[in-house]
């Protein structure tokens, strides 16, 4: 720590107490951080480990032995494959739509002054401060009260509507953060060089905020694919991957669920690692 080196120290540097102090200071923090990381990742390790388990019955909670057979047959159980496909479809569609809508809103809020701006700001903030169960429940109430009976059918469409809704706010916040530190003089330079507003946007502004948009889209995708609570209220008979896990939790979760969970984890970690490396190479 430079502070210690710079500050006039009352104690002599090499004293035993001082040395113990420094060693403790250093190691206590390293050990603590290590323990915290182990705590955070322990359940993930269990998910991965139990994707190789070979339980005799339906419940996959006790270690019985190593097998690869579930990795070779990941969509074995009935309905698991279609649940994964539904989750991915909804995640892709809701990410696309929410990212477009949210980016436009972020541009409006960051670039323009207009009446009703604070209302727009609060309408974007409040969904993030609302417990998921409230959003799910109120959507359900609305769908039920539209034309009762027959009720508005709860299916793919209602899940998609809900996912776009809760994703918009996160996209706006993420893109705005990128726009806030935007070098405006680059746009002015482009305009000085006779680019019109449209050209300036696509050639200067958009490439510069693209990392923010990509980050927002990744966030939206991960929120959507893992959402359980709001989906539980809006899905009707449709089954997404989290809904499948919830339904199976009572009777015993098939090993294949761990296989898919592990795959999602590895793909996510891999893509983050790749984008980081790519970013480093570009800069370096």
């Amino acid at each position: 720590m430079t502070a210690v080196a710079l500050a006039p120290s009352a104690r002599p540097k090499g004293s035993v107490a001082n040395r113990i102090d420094r060693v403790f200071d250093r190691w206590s923090m390293i050990v603590y951080t290590l323990l915290a990381v182990i705590y955070l990742l322990l359940p993930v390790a269990v998910i991965i480990l139990f994707s190789f388990n070979d339980p005799p019955g339906k419940t996959n909670v006790v270690w019985h032995g190593f097998t690869l057979k579930y990795w070779l047959n990941p969509f074995g159980p009935d309905g698991l494959g279609s649940a994964v496909v539904l989750s991915i479809t909804i995640a892709i569609l809701s990410t696309l739509i929410a990212t477009v809508l949210g980016t436009l809103m972020a541009l409006a809020l960051e670039r323009y002054q207009f009446r009703g701006k604070s209302f727009a700001n609060s309408l974007i903030f409040i969904p993030m401060a609302t417990p998921e169960i409230i959003m799910g429940a109120s959507l359900l109430t609305m769908f039920v009260s539209i034309g009762q009976p027959p009720f508005f059918p709860l299916n793919f469409v209602t899940i998609l509507i809900a996912h776009i809704m809760f994703n918009i706010s996160y996209v706006v916040v993420t893109v705005r953060a990128r726009l806030a530190g935007f070098p405006r003089h680059l746009e002015e330079a482009a305009m000085d060089l006779f680019a019109n507003e449209w050209q300036t946007f696509w050639r200067v502004t958009f490439p510069l905020i693209l990392p923010g948009i990509v980050a927002a889209a990744l966030l939206a995708f991960s929120l959507s694919i893992d959402d359980f609570v709001i989906t539980n209220f809006t899905s009707g008979m449709s089954v997404t991957f989290p809904m499948y896990i919830y339904g199976a939790a009572r009777i015993g979760i098939p090993v294949q669920v761990n296989v898919i969970g592990t795959s999602i984890f590895l793909i996510a970690v891999g893509s983050v690692a790749l984008t980081t490396l790519a970013g480093r190479r570009k800069r370096g």
Binding site: P43, D226, I245, G261
Partner: peptide, 12 residues
């Protein structure tokens, strides 16, 4: 941890 399912982590 967010890269795996919230439900699966709870089950873990």
């Amino acid at each position: 941890p967010f890269f795996t399912s919230f439900l699966l982590r709870t089950v873990s």
